[in-house]
Structure formats: structure tokens, C-alpha cells
Design a binder for these strands. Structure first.
Length: 226
DNA sequence: CTCCAGGGGGCCA
DNA sequence: TGGCCCCATGGA
């Protein structure tokens, strides 16, 4: 079946099986954004612990984070790991955000340009930028991560591990309706099913909701990025 | 004890 | 581009 039907089939099965994932955990665009930075290569549990430290001190505000001493910030986010480098990254992002005039001011900037700007901020790469765009700013951007690649690879849909980030992202964005709610749920479901690691428990991936989805493999040998 | 999480950047060929 | 290394905590 065609790729877009295949992707929707996968989404349907995942959603029917797991239900809504209610992403992103967080009460404000700022908390979501900071969480996106803190969770880089880090278990979410540890991130929550770090975010709690900031919440308890009422530091989840742009001006306070912009003013706080970097070493002090590093101490507070310690449980999230990589605390020195993440303190820098949080600082960079918040200072950029403040310079931009806050989240409200970002609304009038089109998604493509905003994405480019985010990618300029030190410590914000593709996945972090897209997580902020989708989950904090509610822009229709598909977030690709290691789970996405693993699941696609595992079920023989694409040779995703060899595809560049942008190519894989455009694969989803050009074959799905640009719907924030769909992208939100889809990525969260990829993470959910990716955590199951059904390939280790059962090589055939029995019990996996998307086992046996019929889809001709999308082969990409020469991947060109933009 | 080892392994690895909801990555990104710097360096080098 | 592609490979390698570094960053670091806490749970399994």
C-alpha cells in the first residue's frame, strides 16, 4: 500500500492500542521548552526531578532564568545529567527567547523561519527544535527521534537508521496531513511503542500493535539533505 | 557490575 | 557527510 496509507494505518493501530498519550507533560510553553532541552539523551524521570527543583523555587519564568547564575542553574538541574552543558543551553535558549520578546511575539513568525532561528541557538538541534515547535508552540512539525527510526526499521518500512533527519522528517510531513494533534500523538506513540522493545522479547514482535502492517519498503540509498 | 535514557557539538579525515 | 568522543545522573 502507499506510504501515506501505511503511515495512517500505523498511527491508527498504535492509537487504538495505546490510546492518547497526552504529550507533552508540562503546564507552559516555557516548561515544555526547558524540558525538551533537559531531556536530551536523558530519561524523562530525571528531567522531572530537575524541573521540580526549578518549580519549587518558582524559577520557571523567562526573566528569572535569564538572570540566574549559570552555576546555580547547573546545580539545580543536576539530576538531569550533563548539567554543565545543559545549563548553558537553557541559558542560551532563554536569552534568545527574551531577546525575541517572549513566546507571544513568536506567533507571527512563520514556522520555517522560526525553525531556522531555533536551530541557530547553541545546544538546540533538530529534535529539540522540532519538539519545541510542535509541543510548546503547536506548529505542525513532525518530530523524528531514535524511537521513530527504530520502529520504522524494525518493521521494515524504511531503512530509517541510514536516513538523515531532514529527509525522514519530510517523509512524514509530506505524506501526512499537517495536523498538530496528529503529529503530537504520532510521535508520542512512537516513543511508547519504541520503549516496548518487542524485538528483544519476541523476534517476531508478537503482540506489537503494528506487527504485520503491509507496506512496500521505502528504500533510500542516496539521501540528499536539502 | 554494566547498560542506557524522549541529543548536540566539536574535531578530523 | 560520516565516524568518534565528550558530556553525567539515576534506575534497571
Amino acid at each position: 500500500m502507499k506510504l501515506r496509507q501505511c503511515l495512517m494505518e500505523i498511527f491508527q493501530r498504535l492509537f487504538d492500542f495505546y490510546g492518547p498519550q497526552n504529550w507533552w507533560p508540562g503546564d507552559s510553553p516555557l516548561e515544555i521548552s526547558i524540558g525538551a532541552i533537559l531531556t536530551q539523551n536523558t530519561n524523562w524521570r530525571n528531567v522531572e526531578s530537575a524541573l521540580d527543583n526549578l518549580k519549587q523555587r518558582d524559577l520557571l519564568e523567562i526573566n528569572k532564568l535569564a538572570e540566574i547564575d549559570e552555576l546555580e542553574l547547573a546545580r539545580l538541574i543536576r539530576p538531569a545529567g550533563y548539567f554543565n552543558i545543559k545549563a548553558k543551553r537553557v541559558k542560551s535558549f532563554v536569552l534568545w527567547l527574551k531577546e525575541m520578546g517572549g513566546f507571544d511575539r513568536l506567533e507571527k513568525i512563520d514556522t520555517g523561519r522560526l525553525r531556522d532561528m531555533l536551530l541557530q541557538v547553541p545546544g538546540i538541534g533538530y529534535e529539540t527544535a522540532d519538539s519545541i515547535l510542535l509541543y510548546a508552540l503547536e506548529r505542525p512539525v513532525f518530530v523524528v527521534d531514535a524511537y521513530t527510526r527504530r520502529v520504522l526499521e524494525r518493521h521494515g518500512i524504511t531503512n530509517a537508521t541510514k536516513m538523515g533527519y531532514e529527509h525522514l522528517r519530510s517523509l512524514f510531513e509530506s505524506n501526512l496531513p499537517k495536523d498538530v494533534r496528529l503529529f503530537n500523538e504520532f510521535h508520542a506513540l512512537f516513543v511508547r511503542v519504541g520503549k516496548e522493545r518487542c524485538h528483544k522479547k519476541s523476534p517476531k514482535c508478537e503482540g506489537c500493535p503494528i506487527a504485520g502492517v503491509e507496506c512496500h519498503e521505502v528504500q533510500v540509498d542516496t539521501v540528499r539533505e536539502r
